[in-house]
Every structure is written in C-alpha cells, then in structure tokens.
C-alpha cells in the first residue's frame, strides 16, 4: 500500500464521516441524494462479496465493513428515521436508477476479465461507482442553498478518486506487470465527472461565497 492509496482511502472514509455527522447533528438530510447512497450500497454489496470468499488483510476487511455499514445507516436514516426522513428532498431527487444501473450491467456482461458471477458483479460495481455520484450532482444543482457539509462531502469524494489515480500511477511505475485497464478507465471517467463541481467549489471557497452550481 502506498501513500496515495492510503490517503485516498482516508479521504473516502472522511467523506462518509462528514455525511454521517451532518445528517446526525442537523437531523436533516437536505441536499443529500438517497439515489446516490443506494447506488453506492449496490456498488459495495457487489464489490465486497469477496468478504466471504477471500481474505486480503485486516485493513481491507474492516474498511469494507465500515463502508457497507455506514452507507446502509445513511439509507436507513433517510428512509425510516422519523425526523430525518421528512427533510429528504424527494421531489428534487428524481434521477432514474435504471439509466445508470442497466447500461453498467450490460457493459459488465460484455466487458469483463472473466465471465463468472463474482467477476461480472465486481466489474459491474466498478462501472456503477463511476457514475453513482450523478444523482447527487444533479440534486446539488437544484439545491439553492447548498449546505457547507454537503459540499465538503462531494469534494472529499472527488478527492478520493483523484488520489486513486495517483495511486495507480505509482503502482504502475513501481510494480512490474501491474495493469488494470477497466478499473483505470472507469476511475478516470469517475474523476472527470467531478471536474465541474471542483471548479465551482474552489471558486466559492476563494471568493468566500456560498457554494452554488449553475443550472
């Protein structure tokens, strides 16, 4: 494990902590996309099936369990918590799951490194993660008054992806025969999706203004 990978994982962990904290402290999930959270839950479930079949390291196992548990906690709060669920922007969070899930599934069936259930589901999770942030970005665009913490959450998630790219470059340069084209391409697509958000996030931070995304 290199420093970029560790920093990426920690940023990912921090992003989820920020989101848990925001929802729990303000008792509000305003501006948070349930669709994105549910897509992430699907991503984690499909990718971490190897929790049952393949032990990699204690670090790996613990992180996987944290990502699964925290995402399901957020979904539970947004759907069922009697105070929090009322604050969910149901009418604004209208992105359709099938537009993301179906193309990713078809792509995973066609483009994978081995045609087995585990491998296809794993590949599906890689493709789906790349686009799972889209409902959240659309919702942010529709939210007039973006909460600082919600903005920070998306910024941290994007930073995690950028750090993963540095991790791949490092691994490519230091590990012989290290190649994973499907993961790289998906990861680059995923990071590109954040560029527009980054631009407005940094601009608002520099000008000391509240973050807002133009429609």
């Amino acid at each position: 494990m290199n420093i970029f990978r560790l920093a990426g994982d920690m940023t990912h962990l921090l992003s989820i902590l920020v989101l848990l904290l925001k929802i729990n402290a303000t008792r509000s999930c305003r501006g948070v996309s349930l669709k994105t959270q549910e897509l992430y839950a699907l991503v984690f479930v499909c990718r971490y099936l190897d929790l049952f079949t393949n032990f990699i390291s204690m670090y790996n196992t613990i992180m996987k369990i944290i990502f699964l548990a925290s995402t399901f906690t957020i979904i539970y709060w947004m759907r069922f918590h009697k105070v929090i669920r009322v604050t969910y922007d149901r009418e604004q969070d209208t992105f359709r799951y099938q537009f993301l899930v179906l193309p990713c599934l078809v792509l995973a069936l066609l483009l994978n490194s081995e045609f087995t259930v585990m491998e296809v589901l794993w590949t599906f999770s890689i493709y789906l993660e790349a686009v799972a942030i889209l409902p959240q970005l659309v919702l942010l665009q529709r939210t007039n008054n973006i909460d600082n913490l919600t903005g920070n959450y998306v910024f941290l998630l994007g930073s995690y992806r950028a750090l993963y790219i540095l991790n791949w470059i490092y691994r490519f340069l230091t590990e012989p025969n290290y190649r994973q084209y499907l993961v790289w391409i998906s990861g680059i697509v995923q990071t590109i999706i954040y560029i527009d958000f980054f631009y407005y996030y940094i601009k608002s931070w520099k000008n000391n203004e509240k973050l807002s995304l133009p429609a």
């Binding site: 990699i56 993963y164 991790n167 025969n177 290290y178 994973q180």
Partner: peptide, 10 residues
C-alpha cells in the same frame, strides 16, 4: 495474476 492483485483496492 493482476486480477487478484487489483482486488486489494477498495
């Protein structure tokens, strides 16, 4: 080979 190796990433 690399299939197993890439699975160590989260």
């Amino acid at each position: 080979e690399s299939v197993a190796e890439e699975k160590d990433e989260l």
